Amino acid sequence: MPTFRKFLLAAICLVAFIFLIRSSRPADVPGAPGYKPVQEIFDEEQESLLRPKKKTKTRQQQALGTYGTAPLRDRLRYQFPYDLRSRFPAYIWQTWKYAPSSAWFDENLRAAEASWTELHPGFTHEVIGDDTQRHLIQYLYGSLPDVFEAYDALPLAVMKADFFRYLVLLARGGIYSDIDTIALKPAPYWLPDELDRSKVGFIVGIEADPDRPDWHDWYSRRIQFCQWTIGAKPGHPILRDMVAYITEEAIRMKRAGILKVGKMDKTVMEFTGPGAWTDAVFRYFNNPEYFRILPGEKNVTYEDFSGQTTHRKMGDAVVLPITSFSPGVGQMGAMDTDHPMAFVKHNFDGTNTLEIHITTRR
């Protein structure tokens, strides 16, 4: 009997000891049961917003396959949020077949490539070679496998080069410029001093302004925006729209078996190039999600930029005149490289957290 009582007493003491230990452990410290960091709560709230209310797949999701339950644009928005108030990242991105450290790097491009480093001593300047581009996109978009699939499936190097610039700017921001461009002025001088940088998230230049009846014989759009040099803060809606458009079209054509040279139902110009890029910029300018468009107000069109000779701010975007990124072309009103508005010269030697900011457009 004494043995039984001792055993019972020991058991009671053990249970009491365990209870005291569990009850004395703080419940609001990292690692404790029931603890949930504020960021984790925020992330879960964001994820719940991205979950569709219905479990049935849309036709688009059925066509693209299962890459998550939310539309691609929402997943891009979540993965790469846009904060207008943030600083422009001090990155300069360029691509070429080989890195500058390679013996195979084209000597004719060294002066142009060096101009970006010399004029931007405080920037991180990266020239991404063909052998590392794929790995970088796979790293940046690891949580968005449909985007990487689209990039990997593109059949032409020029398409991958086009897509890469939108992808790297969406994810990291900064400046992208083709390897055969020469920096004439440092990027901080591209905007006038009186312009509040905290209210600018995107910089684009006019590539072509062909004010002539046969303009369509030479260019894809009456006003064509330049995509050989782009400046943006990460997550900008124009880049998100462009990445989503190319991804969706690439996967659609891949599923249809036509994402091949000579079989695609879109030209490079209308798929990844300046035509599609110009359309994305205009879609943004006419999107009521980002701009307060007054009743009866006409859409923003080429007429708003034709003949432009100085900066034009549209919401958080700044459009530069043709002289800024196309000086010295000798046509369409472009001035020479010594003009105060000349910032980047293209030699054409290469082959290849304010998400919704309602504002008036003018």
Rank of each mutant, 00 (worst) to 15 (best):
I41D: 04
R22T: 13
E45R: 10
A27W: 01
I21M: 08
R51I: 13
L14H: 05
Q60K: 12
F80K: 04
A90G: 00
G34V: 03
S102W: 06
T95S: 07
K53H: 12
K53R: 14
P89I: 09
W96C: 02
S102E: 06
A10V: 06
R73S: 14
R87N: 13
F7D: 12
W93I: 02
P33T: 02
R110D: 05
K36P: 00
A90H: 06
T58D: 05
T66N: 13
K6P: 12
F19P: 00
P26T: 06
F88R: 01
F88G: 03
R75H: 04
C13K: 12
E40R: 05
P71R: 11
S101W: 03
V15G: 03
L8I: 10
Y82L: 07
A99G: 03
K97T: 08
E44N: 15
P26V: 00
Q46K: 10
R59V: 14
Q46A: 07
Q46Y: 02
W96A: 12
A32L: 01
R22L: 11
F17I: 15
T69Q: 12
S48H: 07
F105E: 11
K97W: 01
K57L: 13
L64M: 15
T95D: 01
A27E: 09
A90Q: 14
K36N: 00
S24A: 09
F7N: 04
F7R: 14
W104C: 02
P26E: 08
Y67M: 05
Q94M: 11
P30V: 05
Y67C: 09
Q61A: 15
P33Y: 03
N108M: 11
Q79N: 11
R77M: 03
L72E: 13
G31Y: 04
R25Y: 11
F88P: 00
L49W: 01
P52F: 06
V29M: 00
Q61L: 01
A27F: 02
A11N: 09
K6T: 13
I41F: 04
A111E: 15
P37L: 12
P37S: 13
I41E: 09
K53C: 11
Y82K: 01
K55H: 07
T58Y: 05
R77T: 15
A16E: 11
K55G: 07
A16I: 08
K54L: 05
R77E: 13
S86N: 14
F88T: 06
L8P: 02
P37M: 10
A11H: 07
P100D: 04
I92N: 01
T56P: 00
V38I: 13
A11Y: 11
I92R: 00
K57A: 14
A10C: 07
A103N: 13
P30H: 06
S23Y: 09
K57W: 08
Q62G: 03
G34K: 04
K6V: 11
R59G: 06
R5W: 06
L50I: 04
A111Y: 10
F19Q: 02
W96R: 01
A70S: 14
R5T: 12
R85F: 03
L9Q: 09
